[in-house]
């Protein structure tokens, strides 16, 4: 987690804040890797940053697990019953629409969680992580921005 920080004047607050958080986290992940730690798990970044993963982490053995669901009411209930975390059903629906429709990116594998328990999802994820062949070298062109959601207002993807 990135500690709190001040925002300079004359910058776009949302863009600056998101950029600081993303770059700090990437630096931290790379440092852990440099120190010999493996299976470093990254999550909860702005959806638009998903498009950066194949660029930033090219050359590494990485995999992206994309969780999808075909039942918005299941997601609604999961959010309603969570012990902590954001409660924003509109954001959930918009992000759900974007992510469900988006084609898979490089080294990305989908798990549909519809009607599954957390243990079933975990078991499936372990199999995928252990058995999926992923690419280290590839050519990659970023998809169009409008395929992603972003909480940053000025990205106009909300």
């Amino acid at each position: 987690m990135v500690p709190e920080f001040g925002i300079p004047e004359n910058v776009d607050e949302g863009v600056f804040e998101e950029q600081v958080c993303w770059e700090c986290c990437v630096a931290q992940m790379m440092k852990f890797h440099e120190m010999g730690i493996k299976n470093i798990i990254g999550s909860d970044f702005d959806d638009l940053r998903t498009a950066d993963i194949p660029d930033v982490f090219k050359g590494y053995n990485y995999i992206t697990i994309k969780l999808t669901c075909n039942d918005l009411s299941q997601l609604h209930n999961q959010m309603k019953n969570r012990k902590n975390g954001l409660l924003d059903y509109e954001l959930q629906r918009k992000c759900f629409d974007k992510i469900n429709k988006r084609p898979l990116l490089i080294n990305e594998v989908e798990i549909d969680i519809t009607n599954k328990t957390s243990q079933q999802v975990l078991d499936e994820a372990v199999k995928i992580i252990d058995n999926t062949e992923t690419l280290i070298e590839y050519s990659y062109q970023k998809p169009k921005k409008d395929l992603f959601y972003s909480w940053v207002f000025s990205n106009r993807l909300r």
Partner: peptide
């Protein structure tokens, strides 16, 4: 063994639950 594992999905879908589950298993 992977260098990095990313988990994406909409808010409330279970990203943190899965991440913690993976961490627990491997640890």
């Amino acid at each position: 063994m992977r260098d990095f594992i990313f988990i994406i999905g909409t808010s409330g879908i279970g990203k943190t639950t899965l991440g913690k589950g993976l961490f627990y298993i491997i640890r």
